[in-house]
């Protein structure tokens, strides 16, 4: 039985539209024009307990709106939502005690006090027993290596350290469902990796269901087997990430370093050349032909080094959006 089910969810906003300039302001004063923006339009999906789902899409696609509806922040225009058998917007306390929402661009920590003070506030708000609170803080702070900075004012922490504290604050009550909206935004690659590993561990340790939105495909690739691709408020794809890649990037990239110059004409028989600037050559070949092509290259060309790679997931997703853009519009 799914822990989350979304049935024909729509969220529409009325946005005031004004022509530019003084005349536009006067017109707007007399008769305001409003436009309906369909942030999310008739989407349905369901999620099983313990799954980690990646919500991907460009800015304004409807990812965050969906997350906000699921966490009870936004009142849906249409449709039926169920999270652990609760209707999110009712915001019943037993529901709120089992979820958490982390937004990479906003924080819940008190800026001028150490993170521990916010943790103590959350302890009271979520009514966490003292022993359990200490155990969870110890466990999470060790996992995230922040034991030494729990008592340092938040304003003195780096962005990465703050995000770690945000995660601890959000996980103190051991939520069953975790909504993460761009949790690694603005972080350096090392910190991104740390956060991803932590989330993976958390999911495994607590069997938590995680819904993640991110523009960093590295996050999605590392954490999510299943992805929901969304654009213009519609779901374009819901399935395994590996299937999406196979379906929309049925090729591999062979990267070669030559030991001596090879004539460009000779290279065309192996596949579609992406780039060739001696000594580096990148060629696109069909999935099924990749191994044969590689051995043929090794046999016939002066190769110093060769690698076979999957295409960058960013490229696949970008290609997918371009292919679906017209259709959706």
């Amino acid at each position: 039985m799914p822990i989350i089910s979304v049935d024909h969810l729509s969220k529409h906003y009325q946005v005031h539209k004004k022509e530019p300039g003084f005349i536009g302001s006067l017109k707007s004063l007399v008769a305001r024009k409003y436009e309906t923006v369909k942030a999310v339009d008739d989407i349905s999906f369901s999620i099983e307990e313990g799954e980690v789902i990646g919500f991907i899409g460009p800015n304004g696609a409807g990812k965050t709106t969906t997350l906000k509806c699921l966490s009870g922040l936004l009142y849906p225009t249409k449709g039926k939502l169920s999270v652990m058998d609760f209707t999110p917007f009712d915001r019943k306390h037993p529901f709120l005690r089992q979820i958490s929402l982390v937004m990479g661009q906003k924080n819940q920590l008190w800026w001028d006090l150490p993170a521990m003070d916010t943790f103590l506030l959350n302890k009271e708000i979520y009514q966490i027993p003292t022993k359990r609170f200490s155990d969870v803080v110890d466990d999470l702070s060790v996992r995230l290596s922040v034991q030494d900075i729990l008592h340092v004012p938040v304003r003195k922490l780096s962005l990465g350290q703050r995000m770690k504290m945000e995660l601890i604050a959000a996980l103190l009550h051991s939520p069953k469902v975790l909504f993460l909206d761009e949790p690694t935004i603005g972080l350096d690659v090392v910190m991104q990796k740390t956060i991803r590993e932590f989330l993976k561990e958390y999911n495994e340790a607590y069997n938590a269901t995680i819904i993640l939105t991110s523009h960093y495909m590295g996050d999605v690739e590392a954490l999510c087997k299943r992805v929901v691709v969304i654009n213009f408020g519609h779901i374009l794809y819901d399935g395994l990430l590996s299937d999406l890649v196979k379906e929309h990037a049925p090729y591999k990239i062979i990267k070669v370093i030559f030991s001596e110059v090879v004539e460009e004409k000779k290279l065309n028989e192996y596949g579609e050349t992406k780039s060739y600037v001696f000594p580096e050559w990148e060629v696109r070949v069909k999935h099924k032909d990749a191994n044969d092509a590689a051995s043929s290259i090794l046999k016939h060309l002066p190769v110093e080094d060769i690698t076979i790679e999957n295409p960058q997931i960013e490229d696949v997703i970008a290609g997918f959006f371009v292919a679906n853009k017209k259709e959706v519009k």
């Binding site: 922040l73 915001r91 306390h93 979520y126």
Partner: peptide, 11 residues
């Protein structure tokens, strides 16, 4: 949007 942090807490 600071209301977000209050609305999703059971308090």
């Amino acid at each position: 949007g600071g209301l977000v942090k209050y609305v999703i807490r059971p308090f």
